[in-house]
Design a protein around this nucleic acid. Structure first.
Lengths: 256, 256
DNA sequence: ATAAACTTTATTGTCGACAATTTGTTGACT
DNA sequence: AGTCAACAAATTGTCGACAATAAAGTTTAT
């Protein structure tokens, strides 16, 4: 029963390869060995995409053999992808137990936001000083798409696009290493929002991205930095990271 | 001929397992699958140690089979370790060509320092406000060891210990995610120093670590942050990142 | 003598099979 | 009935063998 359902869900997630709009892409830095297998990269993107879009929920077990048959790949290749995802902290690998979609703890969530508050305002400031017209239009495009998704009440797409907006800023700022780190933080943030978003407060406040865009357009670095900081605080406060009793999983933590 | 020599060097690097003083350790975060193999972790540390201590120079090719025989492990296990190292950007994996000790470019070097200037002063400030006596003595210990190495003109150990000092600060600051990112940056910095250190200026100016330690002892967060920023600038300026024509490898870059 | 095409060698990439581990289940014993 | 132990199923971990690729060396033709 449960097994069957699980199988179907993975299969379903296999189904829609139509919307192939790169998955919170990042040129994958210097492409790792994974890229060699020609389609390891594709599998990576599919799985990551499913996680980002919340079709694979945090905590979900990822069984190697089943993934292998879904993607028509060998287990070894799935393994490559899973280890890569685990290095990016999107998947947790438990020895002899398997791979699971990561479930950031409240502490980790706080740390992620602390890191972002440190890095992103500086990136925003930097970008504002050097931004080119083409970059501005790209950002506008993302914000517009996000707004459409918001209008359509497609929360998952909103979260994904919001992440892409932040990541795009990081990449445009011209520091590949910081961009790479921001990618990790952004991916984690997607998981965190799904885990801790309170029903009441919506994730990324409506127009703060618009304001950021304005600041970029005016090339006002200080304002961009300030807005970014405020924005991050705002997002974090909209989450239930206060002291919420967490998932059942955290029994170990509770009795310690 | 060349083959033989290469073999010997790797063998030699195998030789001294005596000084087993953990290699710029970081509790490896949540231990990845690598840890399962019981000794994959050990192999990882040995190779990373050799790179950090410059016994494996940047650009050096790492042949899987040879490593496997050196460590008495299977090629698959070596492969795990190499992919992990590549995710940490210490090793570059070229499809169908193999693994090489990373050679950060001047641009990457600048980016690394930019990132560190962003993150480390904040971590220093934070640590100064919360530092415990035990932590202070640990830091003192590291600085003392570094000074001993400097007195012994053991430049490689100086660089390694200096990296450990910075990493320890990051870990003590109480943000595991930032600590993880700092670990990457610190490892890269080790490679960068070996690549671009000018013969004249020595790497980590003598007493700046001492001054930092003072600031921590006084719990003076602002001073610690300021010193850290200054220190990083100082280290970067002591390098030949000006416009030095790089290695012969970078012919592609020169004609572009 | 040089350059192109071919052969050889060394190394990486991929896969399937087997061993080890964990998890769930059955059955015997108190 | 309940508890524990042995057993069975499912899943992960490891390895060796083979295929694919790139580099080096050799031959051949101009």
């Amino acid at each position: 029963m449960k097994t069957l359902q699980s199988t179907r869900r993975l299969a379903d997630e296999d189904a829609p390869p139509a919307q192939e709009g790169r998955v919170l892409r990042l040129s994958a830095g210097r492409r790792t060995r994974s890229a060699a297998g020609a389609d390891a990269e594709a599998i990576y993107r599919r799985i990551l995409g499913a996680i980002i879009e919340h079709r694979l929920a945090p905590g979900r077990k990822l069984v190697e053999e089943r993934l292998a048959s879904v993607f028509g790949a060998s287990r070894a290749m799935i393994r490559q992808v899973l280890t890569r995802l685990s290095h990016e902290m999107v998947v947790t690998l438990v020895p002899n137990r398997g791979a699971f979609v990561a479930e950031p703890t409240v502490d980790e969530a706080r740390e992620v936001f602390e890191a972002r508050r440190l890095i992103e305002p500086a990136l925003a400031r930097k970008l504002a000083q050097t931004v080119a017209p083409a970059q501005l239009s790209r950002l506008r495009q993302l914000v517009a798409a996000e707004e459409r998704a918001r209008a359509a009440r497609d929360r998952q797409t909103v979260i994904k696009l919001s992440g892409e907006f932040h990541l795009e800023i990081a990449e445009m700022a011209g520091n590949a290493i910081l961009a790479r780190q921001m990618r990790e933080l952004t991916l984690l943030t997607c998981l965190i929002i799904f885990l801790y978003d309170s029903p009441g407060g919506r994730a990324c406040p409506d127009d703060e991205h618009h304001q950021l865009l304005d600041a970029f357009t005016c090339r006002d670095g200080e304002r961009a930095a300030g807005l970014m900081l405020h924005h991050l605080d705002h997002v974090e406060q909209s989450l239930d990271i206060s002291l919420t009793a967490q998932d059942d999983d955290d029994l170990e933590r509770i009795f310690s």
